[in-house]
């Protein structure tokens, strides 16, 4: 056996290692697309046209690609929000709420400090967004570190509190007096809007997301802090006996994760919405959790999985227009893709 592996061309071997997962991925995607096509046929729709529409509206044009990138931005950040705590086996299902709190804190700055120069204002908004989402998640981290409440449950419950808090503000104290009956804040001043690329809606948030991915990957792989995180993730009891303060790591990983989701909220509210609305997110926090899970928490995988889900999310808007299908129908496609992946990766914790 050893002889055979020695004789094998090492470059071919590397290619094979790359091709095998790609082939598996293509096979899974084909199964998922076939299943969704079957659902569409069942309801009397033409699946080939639906796929053609999704493709041409997302990857088929420059504008489509830009819209895909727009959807990718919050997805990467909320996926990291789940991925960072997951390194020490914490389950953060609270990305949605952390995103809302981040948006809320950034909005406070946008409304109350609108006289500041744009650069300064945006920095404050991003910092407050990060801090808001981070502290929101750190509450759950604290409840877990103290041994009171499991973070899975507390992050889930706090999603609703966060969304209701935003509703309370936009229906009440922060409501735009000129907004007739729309529940929303006043429109942000130009200085509170993140810069965008050319004539598209791609905004600086995408840079935040990519930089955050790289920073997280670096922190986890190359620093003493990351080493200790990996030690806790490997064997928490051994780490504790080696004097690693696990409680502090629980708090900090939750803070970072929540902060990144909060940053996603800041970017959405600033660049996409331009004001705070309750319809801020179509479940980005939950999608992010699923992306992180699909990617096994690995940074490059997160970007790839976020891309796939962004294409599906962006494609949903077009199905609504061309096929007269409800917009949420793409949720089926997303779910089918996820189910196929879930069923394939059997036995993973």
């Amino acid at each position: 056996m050893a002889d055979a592996s020695l004789l094998r061309d090492s470059r071919l071997d590397a290619l094979g290692r790359l091709a095998a997962p790609l082939g598996r991925f293509a096979a899974l995607l084909t199964i998922a697309l076939a299943l969704f096509a079957a659902v569409l046929v069942l309801f009397g729709r033409n699946p080939l046209r639906a796929y053609a529409d999704i493709f041409s509206s997302t990857l088929g044009s420059a504008y489509g690609v830009s819209e895909t990138l727009v959807k990718m931005t919050p997805l990467i950040l909320t996926a990291l929000a789940a991925a960072v705590p997951s390194r020490i086996w914490l389950i953060n299902v609270g990305g949605e709420g952390q995103l809302f709190v981040g948006a809320l804190c950034a909005t406070w700055a946008a409304i109350h400090l609108d006289g500041l120069p744009s650069f300064l204002l945006l920095t404050i908004m991003a910092a407050l967004g990060f801090l808001g989402g981070g502290l929101w998640a750190a509450i759950a981290g604290g409840l877990r570190a103290g041994g009171w409440v499991s973070e899975t449950i507390s992050t889930l419950l706090m999603n609703y509190v966060a969304i209701l808090l935003v509703n309370f503000l936009v229906f009440g104290p922060w409501k735009d007096p000129d907004g007739v009956n729309y529940p929303q804040t006043v429109e942000f001043a130009a200085g509170a809007i993140l810069p965008m690329l050319g004539g598209t809606r791609v905004h600086l948030g995408l840079v935040f997301a990519l930089v955050a991915t790289i920073v997280c990957a670096f922190l986890l792989a190359r620093t003493r802090w990351g080493l200790e995180v990996r030690a806790i993730g490997g064997n928490a009891e051994a780490a504790r006996r080696n004097g690693i303060p696990i409680e502090r790591y629980v708090l900090v990983t939750m803070l970072i994760g929540g902060g990144l989701a909060g940053l996603a909220g800041m970017a959405e509210v600033s660049a996409i919405q331009g004001r705070l609305r309750p319809s801020l997110s179509p479940g980005y926090g939950y999608s992010g959790f699923l992306i992180s899970w699909m990617a096994g928490g690995h940074p490059a995988g997160i970007v790839a999985a976020a891309f796939v889900l962004a294409v599906i999310t962006a494609g949903g808007d077009i199905l609504q227009m061309t096929q007269a299908l409800p917009g949420s129908v793409v949720n089926i496609l997303m779910a089918v893709v996820l189910f196929v992946v879930l069923a394939r990766q059997a036995g993973r914790p």
């Binding site: 699923l290 899970w293 949720n331 089926i332 779910a335 993973r348």
Partner: peptide
């Protein structure tokens, strides 16, 4: 499969 991930997927579905 992971129960939390499968549950959220079922919700979306």
């Amino acid at each position: 499969a992971n129960q939390l991930a499968a549950g959220l997927t079922l919700m979306f579905c």
